[in-house]
Nucleic acid binder design. Structure first.
Lengths: 200, 200, 200, 200
DNA sequence: GATGAATGAGACTTCATTCAT
DNA sequence: TATGAATGAAGTCTCATTCAT
């Protein structure tokens, strides 16, 4: 019965990874001990090493996780009319999503991830992949807007994309440091600012 | 060494702290060992403990360093005419400053600091102080602009301030991950976006 | 080792404590290193810390060990006829016991313990408990003797008890410094002296 | 001016040794750091090493100190009439002396010394010298008493001497653990016990 | 001689990983 | 497969001793 076993293995990996994610987001990668993960997962150390090579491999797996569906979202966004509409749609998905309670720990984990990228080239690679994809997607939306005439032709599409990215990353940081951050108000203010409706 | 002046002590502390900053920004607080700092500072472990109580006290000192002149900058900015002018002045100081080569390590350190805030309440306190000050300053600039009529009355001053903060933090992150980030182009794009000159 | 019984844990603690006692009695508490204990116990440092919080907790446990049955001995002694008989019975138990070879290390440990009491209030507490109990027991035997008429009414019961205590402690010291001390001859001489049979 | 220098050297050694004694009696030999001694002596570490080879040599010197005049005391005691008189004279000198406040720290130091003898053969040698001398002196007093007829002929002179020694050592211990010990009452009780005046 | 900062060996303790059961 | 006790390398910190001034 290989099928059952394989499913079982996958379930165990998931269980361990979830425990690891919870610990990592609470305490960071390197302050989390294997024992912390054991307790969170209700498993023994030996069991964990049946499913993961090492703690580092758990970190790596946490860093490359759940970032595959980004492409599809972008494909959908591209379909929309103006660049503004597309970007506001993305804000809905990528930014408002931060508000949900179950994302609190994801937010914290992302900040931990940022700092890990600075010392672990593998993690940097893993993190840059999706980030580059998002940046490229945003840039192409801006460029399409320029072709369509709803984005100023003088705009620096690449760096406009970076500015939009910063608006998200900066919120992630604020949210992680201060869970009372009101994402809705943030998004509203963000829309006003980017629409030129603030500084007249 | 019979006569050791206070300046000498201060210079040694500086030397050790600089070494620690270099290591911390490279490797994070907890991946940096005392030995790393010793080698960077060309001192023995024992020597370091003549100047610092513990590694934690070094971390704490690194976290609370060089953030006192913020108030003065804001006071200067308040003097300027419109909110836009004030904010662009601040962008000059707070954001363009990131571009200088000697800030590369400061940028990386700041990202490490962010992640440390998530697990160390003392560091969170230390980090939130200046951040709150900056947020409050930005908010008051926006509010003054609203009174003066150069900022839209419907804007949510507090969250507009947060958006501006995010624009800086997000750049710090990009810069730390990718040293080739062109801060000038970023600032230019940022000005265009906030001026409503991009998404028409 | 899936099933580790409570007895196993207790046996390991015992094993480690015995090793610690051996080292402490040889070298004193603070000259003994964790590594010394490891070698004596044939365990690694890590293993020891599965059973003891710290070296200090091992010292504490060594200091409060094996001193609970004192009360019963005294209760038995109280039953005896004259004060002299009671005290000679106690001498049998408390003093002759020192002669057995396996007490050699206990004797040395006690001397180490004395010196530790002088700088560690917790150890002083732990050590004073049994000592006070013994002193009080001896005093009450003397007082009972006075009521029964077999101890002089003018004797200072409290300090007579202290003198008896000193006779034991002093032997412990001699025995620790000189293992060839003949406890039987000591006890015989002690009985003669206290009986007034020496200095006529 | 070699004379002056030599005196100076001796004075400095004395100053350092006194500081060391104070520290050792407070904290034990091995818990006392060189820095503790420096502070007590108001000298720098370097200065101390101009007068002593090492910390161990300071310990050794502390252990062999102030025990040379014992012989003279004994010679005086031998002159006295009965063994009882001689021993009560010695009690006056050796035991009542413990009561003086300035002996408090000497008492504590002696207990520290006992424990040091158990691990340091040199210290054991140093300590056993005077102790053997005292034991021999006591034994000879007893033997003389036996020849003179004021000590029972059946007494075991060597171990009677040990019993007398124990009476002193045991008091030293009690005094070090409990500074409120009343030495006068102790000596009184001791005399009564050894006179056979207690247990009738 | 005196100073005290610097050295560096070595102490205690933690924790990722292994392996006998 | 699961267990968790055992391992041992590595980390932080202390302290006796040295040496340039």
């Amino acid at each position: 019965m290989p099928k059952v076993t394989e499913e079982h293995v996958e379930a165990r990996r998931r269980q361990i990874l979830d425990a690891a994610l919870a610990c990592f987001s609470r305490n960071g990668f390197h302050q989390t001990t294997i024992n912390d993960i054991c307790e969170e997962a209700n498993l023994s150390a030996g069991a964990i090493y049946n499913y993961f090579e090492s703690k580092d491999s758990m970190i790596a797996e946490c860093c490359t996780h759940g970032q595959t569906e980004i492409g599809e979202v972008f494909d959908g966004a591209q379909m929309l009319g103006t660049a503004r509409e597309a970007i506001e749609k993305l804000a809905e998905v990528f930014i408002m999503g931060i508000a949900s309670p179950e994302e609190q720990s994801a937010t914290r984990l992302e900040v931990q991830l940022w700092s890990e990228t600075l010392r672990n080239p593998d993690v940097l690679q893993a993190a840059m992949g999706p980030r580059s994809q998002v940046l490229a997607g945003l840039q192409s939306i801006v460029e399409r807007g320029q072709r369509n005439g709803d984005v100023s032709g003088v705009a620096d599409a690449e760096y406009v994309a970076r500015v939009l990215m910063a608006l998200r990353d900066g919120l992630v940081l604020q949210q992680s440091m201060d869970p009372d951050t009101d994402v809705s108000r943030y998004v509203a203010a963000m829309k006003q600012v980017t629409a030129g409706a603030v500084f007249t």
